[in-house]
């Protein structure tokens, strides 16, 4: 109420509202012009830069936000991949172990087979050696016997054979050789 009373008393004294309010309309116009000029200047030089900065900052914040989302996603994906690799590695390890076991068992059975074959071969060679020894002995005995037969024949024929049977022998030999 005091304000309105003051305003009524001021206007009633001069009859001018602006004057009553203490506002110099020239100064106001100048201030308005100055203000507009200021706004224009600000709008031309300050606000674009400011807005640009703000936009940039907003963009950076947005980017950072996106990046963090992306990083999170990548981290999740890496974790998944890691788990998948681990699974694969576990499977391969199982395979390798199984293969190694299989190979070891094959090696054992191959070695057993080889040993068996070697043993058989040694036994066969021993039998062959004995066979050869027997054959050699047989040959030697045969040779000795023939030698003795020839020697005995030589002795006997030398003493027993005479001219007449010899001539018959010669005649037969000539007849057979014709």
């Amino acid at each position: 109420m005091t304000f309105y009373t003051t305003v009524a008393e001021a206007t009633s004294g001069s009859g001018d509202l602006l004057s009553a309010l203490g506002i110099n309309w020239q100064l106001l116009i100048i201030q308005i012009v100055a203000f507009l000029l200021l706004v224009a200047l600000l709008g031309r030089f300050v606000y674009p830069w400011l807005m640009k900065s703000v936009d940039q900052r907003q963009k950076d914040i947005e980017d950072a936000k996106n990046a963090s989302i992306e990083a999170q996603r990548a981290a999740q994906q890496s974790q998944k991949d890691g788990e998948a690799l681990l699974d694969e590695a576990r499977r391969e390890a199982t395979d390798i172990v199984a293969t190694a076991k299989q190979e070891a068992s094959d090696i054992v059975s191959t070695s057993e087979e080889k040993s068996r074959l070697v043993a058989e071969r040694i036994a066969k060679e021993a039998r062959d050696d004995i066979g050869r020894d027997v054959e050699a002995a047989r040959k030697q005995l045969r040779a000795e016997t023939l030698e003795l037969v020839a020697l005995a024949t030589e002795k006997v024929v030398g003493k027993v054979h005479t001219k007449k049977p010899d001539e018959a022998l010669i005649a037969e030999a000539l007849k057979e050789s014709k």
Binding site: R127, I130, G131, V134, E135, A137, R138, L141
Partner: peptide, 8 residues
């Protein structure tokens, strides 16, 4: 393996 057979 052959045997040393005197008969043979």
């Amino acid at each position: 393996m052959s045997n040393l057979s005197i008969t043979e």
